[in-house]
Each structure stands twice: as structure tokens, then as C-alpha cells.
């Protein structure tokens, strides 16, 4: 069991992910944009964040950079999984070099996502 924050501006997707990860036994909270997500991460100190890339107010890459640049803002060693429709090679590179741990492209399978979450959490 781990603490997970999901940040995605699509409400249906957010709920679907939440259900799935709760079923896996995780403790889940959600936010609808980057700014809200960052505040939630500070307050909640999760083990893992599932981040959408394209969101209003602040995008997922900026959130990732902020978390990596200021380790005290979100708990040290928080795992970051970027979940996005951007599928180009350069996008993956940009996300990973900003400090993301894993990258999953939409359309995605929630079973695969749950497996990646477990694998990321096991690596500590």
C-alpha cells in the first residue's frame, strides 16, 4: 500500500485511474491541474505521482521539474509517472530528462498502468 496522487484534467480518466489504484490497495487523492496538483503533493507527501502532461495552469513537465529542483516540496524520491497522449520520441526524452521515472502513452490500459505503478513502487 502506497500513497498516490493523480493529476489529470480529464475528470472521467481521473476517476477511472483512482478506482483502479484504490482497488490495488493504494491510498489515492486527485487533482485537476498542475497548480492544484503541486499543492496536493506538498501537503500529502505521496510515494508516487501519476501526472498528465497537457493540463491547464501548469503542465506535467513543469510540475516534474519543480519537484526535482526542490526536493522538500514533494518529499524526496517521489516516483513520477507521466501519462500523456504525446507519443513522439522527443516528448519521451523531454519528460525523462525533466526527471520523470516512467512514461506511458494514451491510449493506455489501466491494467498496464497498475503494473507499472507496482514496479515503480517496488524500486526503492
Amino acid at each position: 500500500m502506497a500513497r498516490v496522487v493523480i493529476v489529470d484534467d480529464d475528470q472521467d480518466l481521473r476517476r477511472l485511474l483512482e478506482r483502479r489504484l484504490v482497488r490495488e490497495g493504494h491510498d489515492v487523492v486527485t487533482a485537476a491541474d498542475g497548480i492544484e496538483g503541486l499543492a496536493l503533493i506538498r501537503e500529502y507527501q505521496p510515494d508516487l505521482v501519476v501526472l498528465d502532461w497537457m493540463m491547464p495552469r501548469m503542465n506535467g513537465i513543469e510540475v516534474t521539474q519543480l519537484l526535482r529542483d526542490n526536493p522538500d516540496s514533494g518529499g524526496e524520491g517521489v516516483r513520477i509517472l507521466i501519462l500523456t497522449a504525446r507519443s513522439q520520441e522527443s516528448d519521451v526524452v523531454r519528460a525523462l530528462s525533466a526527471g520523470a521515472d516512467d512514461y506511458l502513452v494514451k491510449p493506455f490500459s489501466s491494467t498496464e498502468l497498475a503494473a507499472r505503478v507496482s514496479s515503480l513502487l517496488a524500486r526503492r
Binding site: 480529464d10 480518466l13 477511472l16 491510449p107 493506455f108 490500459s109 489501466s110 491494467t111
Partner: peptide, 15 residues
């Protein structure tokens, strides 16, 4: 409408 929208982001067992 909702299903069409959601399905654009999903694959695998959910879809």
C-alpha cells in the same frame, strides 16, 4: 458521447 470520448484514451481490458 462520453464513451466515445473516454475510449480515445483507453485500450486493453477497459476498452
Amino acid at each position: 458521447d462520453l464513451a466515445v470520448r473516454l475510449a480515445t484514451s483507453l485500450k486493453g481490458s477497459d476498452r
